[in-house]
Structure formats: C-alpha cells, structure tokens
C-alpha cells in the first residue's frame, strides 16, 4: 500500500519530480517542498479561498487536493500569473486600485479573477461579486477588488 508516492508535475512552467507523503495536500507541497510560498493557507477546509490556484487550467482549492492527485498536471500559482497567465494588467489594476491590504487573500483572489476574465465574462459588478464570493477578504470590503477586475475587462475590451 502506498504511503508515499513519486509525482511529476509542472509548476509555473518548471518540471518537478518529487517524493511526497500521500496525505500531504497540494498547498503544503507547493509551499514547503517547492518553496513557492505565494500560495497561502487560510482554513484548510476549502472555505476561505486563499489557497486557490490553477490546476490544468481551472481554479481549485489546493488545500482540498492531495499532492499525489496532481501527478502529471500543470499548475500555475501567483508567482506565475504575470507571465504564464498574461495577467500583468490585472496585477497593475489591483495595485493602482488598492485591491489588497494585507495581501493574504491575494493569491486566491487573483486566481478567481483571472478565471472570470479568461472565461470572457462581462464587467458586471454583480457577476464579478458572485464569482469571487468563495474568496474571503477581511481587509478591503471587496469593492476595490471588483473595481480592479472590471477595469481590467474594460481595458481589454477597448
């Protein structure tokens, strides 16, 4: 029976082959084994959204996925959003609009925002709020985040 496994996966374009305990979740794996600490852990039960990242092109909660389940997959984390997700405009708008304070929700918030924009959704504030309603932010009150997402969509449309 397997208690550890060797997994091969690509993170932000870089290939990794690692041995992992099968019980280790993907968030812990990326943070402690790979050393990409930009992915944050906020609740470890899938509710807060801080650990959200991209696995094979879609957002997932990395605290609710085992590292071993990610074997063979392609992962993008906050460290890769500027280049691998072409999100430099979104990042710029988060910055200029002050769409983060403590920065702890930011990795997950960016992931959900990128997904919303990539799906071709409109700059509709209510739809944006619904899409990010699984990402908890204690600091901003969300308005600045919605502003930044909508601005990015509008800028891309023009």
């Amino acid at each position: 029976m397997m208690k550890t496994a060797q997994i091969t996966l690509t993170i932000n374009g870089e290939k990794h082959i690692e041995d992992v305990p099968v019980r280790m979740n993907l968030a812990d794996f990326i943070r402690t084994k790979i050393g990409l600490t930009g992915t944050h852990v906020g609740c470890e039960h899938g509710v807060c959204g801080a650990c959200t990242l991209f696995l094979d092109g879609v957002t997932i909660r990395s605290c609710l996925t085992l590292a071993v389940q990610a074997d063979g997959s392609e992962i993008t984390t906050i460290e890769g959003y500027e280049t691998d997700k072409n999100a430099s405009d979104l990042i710029k708008n988060f910055h200029t609009r002050n769409a983060l304070q403590c920065g702890y929700c930011t990795p997950g918030m960016l992931a959900s925002s990128i997904e919303y924009i990539e799906q071709g959704n409109p700059a509709d504030r209510e739809l944006v709020k619904q899409h990010i309603s699984g990402n908890y932010c204690r600091c901003t009150g969300y308005q600045a985040i919605v502003d930044a997402i909508c601005t990015t969509i509008e800028e891309r449309q023009n």
Partner: peptide, 11 residues
C-alpha cells in the same frame, strides 16, 4: 503591494 501581488510576501 507590488511584491505581494507577485507572491513575494514574507509571512
């Protein structure tokens, strides 16, 4: 905020 947006916080 620049580095926080690029995953380079120091928590």
């Amino acid at each position: 905020a620049s580095r926080l947006l690029r995953g380079k916080g120091h928590y």
